[in-house]
Design a protein around this nucleic acid. Structure first.
Lengths: 333, 333
DNA sequence: ATATTAAAAGTAAGCGGTTTCATGATTGCT
DNA sequence: AGCAATCATGAAACCGCTTACTTTTAATAT
């Protein structure tokens, strides 16, 4: 009553050919006489034979499985990327082993080792801190890696992103252009390269090009959550900010609602511009102006790039930069 | 320069023991003398040996991998469930192969076969239509399955849910209690069992207990998206509804904003109560009243249940029903 | 000491495929 | 018709590990 598995051997016997031949037809190897192929196919059909992917993986050293390391599944930014990854993975017949990292260093390390043990053919990494340990783990994996919507500060690994510096520069410049002089910079941890090395740089650029001094008091690090944003409202008023650039939409929604509930009018008294153009920007009231990013495409392109890498195909630039935009909604004047 | 993999054989040789012994220490088998164990452990450490999970899976017929079938990663309802699943899976050292189904029947079928080929030890299914074909595929998988936050109309498979009928009854009763007589019922496709057999039933119950007639014109089927909800605003006004029960938060946000933008005041002129208590309910303005569900727990409990099933442990009731609640926010009076 | 039993370690047969290499069957050419 | 070249197949090693089953070693009893 247990699994009545039919193996390649059963098919071979039934079709009166060798396992090798069955293997060939299953794998589409052309060196099989049409008549034989048909005979085998018939038996496969009749026996409802399904190749065991694990055995295949062991023998061929290819698992047709990739690992996807994601900081937070419930964050729209990442889940949109994941959707793009997933679609392309399906297209190329790869399965995805999902690994949540919670942006936690030890967990990332553990997860990479785990994926390595499972012999994944490739890895897509989302996250913004790469320690030496993690880099080592990547190397041990012996599988190509691409960073999706995540920046590799040392530019060692292939990655797909937008130009964060330019995008933030543009966004903040818009705020400045409308007369704001005290613009808050609200993001997640400054330990993350994307914040420290890219967004902040854009922010500073925009300020300095308009001769506005940099005030550390306007820099807010917190976590990417609605609550965190909401809680920030008071502090933002205390420093007399009149606008804010925010690095995450949910966080921005928190800031927006926190401010609104505190009686601050957005955009009249306070302008907000956020970063990811996820659905939150449409749902909130007022709706939120945002940098726009081709989230789905970033995921899709990352995965496509990974397939090439796994296939040892020639690729052009290891770093692909997709276009961004700026969408004006109601949170800016 | 290729993968310089160190195998169990290398360890055995280096430690001057047999492969079997190495295997034993790796798997924590107690029948190993402490001294030997230590010796092997040292060599493992020194050689940085990492067992190949694929080989292990083939030999032991256990992959410590489960499949998770999810209709839409970017839908908060599902991603919250997934988070619960993921946490518990990690706790029990299972990896997750993620499979998006898009609530598409053929894709579901293909996906299940795929997971079967990969020899997953178990499957968590989210989705609300189970055709005969799909059921067959489940059986072929020869692995336990649990339905998470998804209803099995035939009660064949283990599942974890809330009492949807009661929840919707309560929710709609509240609406009725405040004097609404024309209450719209807005959900996804009526092909989905959860809508057709559960929510609608609750809706009808609430109405009939207050002697309110059932009007088919108040039933709206659409897809679970913000846009779809937004587009519904006009129709809702046309049928002179004064309130709506909505089966998905994003959809509800659409209805809310669509109505608001059309000049309808919520909750003064129109009350809305939604279903999943995801973060959207807090972000929208007005915030949305909702049925509350322990989303994370549904996922977590499902996964825990699956581990028991995979372990052939005795389980009590195959159908676990978690408590729900009703949270009043600003979209109801 | 010797017999009995339990603990520790080893041997080798798989698990279900892929793939190299050798061999037999065909086909093409002169 | 005869020989080389090509195509189709089969034999068997191997992928890296688990797990009966067997043998050796250590512990306990008599």
């Amino acid at each position: 009553m247990d699994k009545q598995t039919v193996t390649i051997y059963d098919v071979a016997r039934e079709a009166a050919v060798s396992m090798a031949t069955v293997s060939r037809v299953v794998n589409g190897n052309p060196n099989v006489k049409p008549a034989t192929r048909q005979k085998v196919l018939d038996v496969i059909d009749q026996l409802d034979y399904r190749p065991n992917a694990v055995a295949r993986g062991l023998a061929s050293k290819k698992t047709t499985t990739i690992g996807v390391i994601i900081p937070d599944l419930t964050n729209s930014y990442f889940s949109e990327l994941a959707r793009g990854i997933d679609d392309v993975a399906l297209m190329y017949k790869y399965n995805i082993i999902l690994a949540s990292s919670d942006e936690n260093h030890d967990k990332e390390l553990q997860v990479v080792d785990n994926l390595t043990a499972k012999q994944v053919d490739g890895i897509i990494f989302m996250g913004n801190q790469v320690s030496k340990d993690l880099r080592d783990a990547f190397n041990r994996a012996n599988a190509p890696i691409v960073f999706a919507g995540s920046v590799d500060p040392e530019h060692q690994s292939p990655s797909v992103n937008i130009d964060y510096v330019a995008a933030v520069t543009d966004a903040v410049a818009k705020l400045v252009g409308r007369g704001n002089r005290r613009i808050a910079f609200v993001t997640g941890s400054m330990d993350e390269s994307i914040n420290k090395d890219y967004r902040l740089k854009g922010y500073k650029q925009a300020l300095s090009s308009k001769r506005i001094g940099y005030d550390e008091g306007l820099i807010f690090q917190t976590d990417y959550s609605y609550k965190a944003g909401y809680a920030l409202a008071k502090a933002l008023q205390d420093v007399k900010a009149t606008a804010a650039f925010v690095g995450d939409d949910e966080l921005a929604a928190g800031v927006l609602n926190g401010l609104t509930d505190a009686g601050v009018k957005v955009p009249e008294d306070f302008e907000i511009i956020t970063s990811n153009d996820t659905r939150f920007t449409e749902i909130s009231r007022p709706t939120m102006s945002s940098i726009t990013q081709p989230l789905y495409d970033i995921g899709a392109v990352s995965m496509r790039l990974l397939t090439k890498l796994m296939n040892n195909e020639e690729i052009g630039d290891k770093t692909v930069v997709l276009p961004y935009g700026l969408k004006k909604r109601q949170s800016t004047k």
